[in-house]
Lab assay of single mutants.
Amino acid sequence: QAPETKIVDKSRVACDGGEGALGHPRVWLQIPEDTGWVECPYCDCKYVLKGSKADAL
């Protein structure tokens, strides 16, 4: 199944896999201003900063 994409309001987000005990260790991710998105290294969930150029795609 394809990784999930989430639109977020802040450039710093936490990801834990979203499945409680079945998820992964919580990691904090920083969305770079130049790209407007970041992917979780564990679950490949893509976080897109709302209003960024990546959000316009």
Score class of each variant (00 low, 15 high):
Glu39Trp: 14
Trp28Asn: 00
Tyr47Lys: 02
Ile7His: 06
Gln1Leu: 13
Ile31Tyr: 02
Gln1Arg: 14
Gln1Ala: 11
Arg12Lys: 07
Arg12Trp: 14
Val8Gly: 01
Ser11Val: 11
Trp28Ala: 00
Cys15Thr: 00
Leu29Ser: 01
Cys15His: 00
Trp28Ile: 02
Asp44Arg: 15
Asp55Ala: 04
Tyr47Asp: 12
Asp16Trp: 08
Asp34Ile: 06
Ala54Ser: 06
Cys45Leu: 15
Pro32Lys: 05
Glu33Pro: 11
Leu22Phe: 12
Thr5Gly: 07
Val8Met: 02
Gly18Ala: 07
Cys15Arg: 00
Lys53Gly: 10
Asp44Ile: 11
Leu49Phe: 07
Gln30Glu: 11
Leu57Ala: 14
Cys40Met: 09
Ile7Asp: 02
Val27Tyr: 03
Cys45Met: 15
Asp34Thr: 06
Ala14Thr: 07
Gly17Ala: 04
Val8Lys: 03
Thr35Asp: 06
Val8Cys: 06
Lys46Gly: 03
Val48Tyr: 07
Lys50Ala: 11
Gly20Gln: 05
Arg12Cys: 14
Ala2Lys: 13
Pro25Glu: 10
Asp16Cys: 14
Leu49Trp: 02
Leu49Arg: 08
Gly20Val: 05
Ala56His: 14
Glu33Lys: 10
Leu29Ala: 02
Val27Ile: 12
Ile7Tyr: 12
Asp44Ala: 15
Thr35Trp: 06
Ala54Thr: 05
Glu33Leu: 13
Ala14Asn: 02
Trp28Met: 03
Thr5His: 11
Val8Pro: 05
Glu19Pro: 14
Ala54Gly: 07
Ala54Gln: 06
Lys50Leu: 06
Ser52Lys: 02
Ile7Cys: 07
Lys53Val: 12
Asp34Gln: 09
Asp44Trp: 15
Ala54Met: 04
Asp9Pro: 05
Val27Thr: 05
Gln1Asn: 12
Glu4Trp: 15
Thr35Arg: 06
Ala14His: 08
Lys6Leu: 11
Cys15Ala: 00
Ala14Tyr: 14
Val27Cys: 09
His24Leu: 03
Pro25Ser: 08
Glu39Asn: 12
Gly36Leu: 02
Cys43Ala: 00
Val48Arg: 02
Val8Ala: 03
Thr35Met: 08
Asp9Met: 12
Pro32Asn: 07
Leu22Met: 14
Lys53Cys: 12
Pro32Val: 04
Glu33Tyr: 10
Ser11Gln: 09
Leu49Ala: 08
Glu39Met: 14
Cys43Asn: 00
Cys40Ala: 08
Pro3Cys: 15
Asp9Arg: 09
Pro41Met: 06
Ser11His: 08
Leu22Arg: 14
Cys15Ile: 00
Val48Gln: 05
Ala56Phe: 13
Ser52Ala: 03
Cys15Tyr: 00
Cys40Pro: 06
